[in-house]
Nucleic acid binder design. Sequence first.
DNA 1: AACCGGTACAACCGCTTGTTA
DNA 2: CTAACAAGCGGTTGTACCGGT
Length: 167
Amino acid sequence: MHRGVWSKQEDQKLIDYITKHGEGCWRNLPKAAGLIRCGKSCRLRWMNYLRPNLKRGNFSEDEDDLIIKLHALLGNRWSLIAGRLPERTDNEVKNHFNSHLRRKLIKMGIDPNNHKISHYLHIKRLEFFPENSTKSENDGAISDASSSCANDQQITSSLLPDLNSVP
DNA sequence: AACCGGTACAACCGCTTGTTA
DNA sequence: CTAACAAGCGGTTGTACCGGT
């Protein structure tokens, strides 16, 4: 069983076969198409890279925003997120989020796992709301959780897009 | 030129879900 | 109902590439 990166010849065999016979029956496809791959691998290759109408390449700002909004709403449900992005695959969205958007959110002081304000912004919060900083906070202690939470929501909402505006 | 570390993305693996007999 | 199988999903790993030293 061949594994690893797909060659041009393999791609062409897969395209030719599916163009002629259509998708489905992935288990039997490799043999029928003359490929030394498992059906699962063929399906993945087709779905993520060979399928027509796939948009390849850089993500636009709009797409980034939408992915962030949807991830905040749906979590790691990449296929659902990709479903809202025409011409993008779940694998592509997942990779893009993990390699680009995760870093972007961290830079903004947002925890990419739950889209909440990160500990780093606790410091920033003191800059936003100096009137709420108590003496103990100034001494380095953690502030009262309830007031912290309310303030964090204010900061977070100023940084995060409005999730209700997701199309 | 050679090596190394970091990054981006392609591909695989294991598990879950849906379907059918 | 349930067992077997196919398809789908998300986490993880592998690999090519690039810039720095």
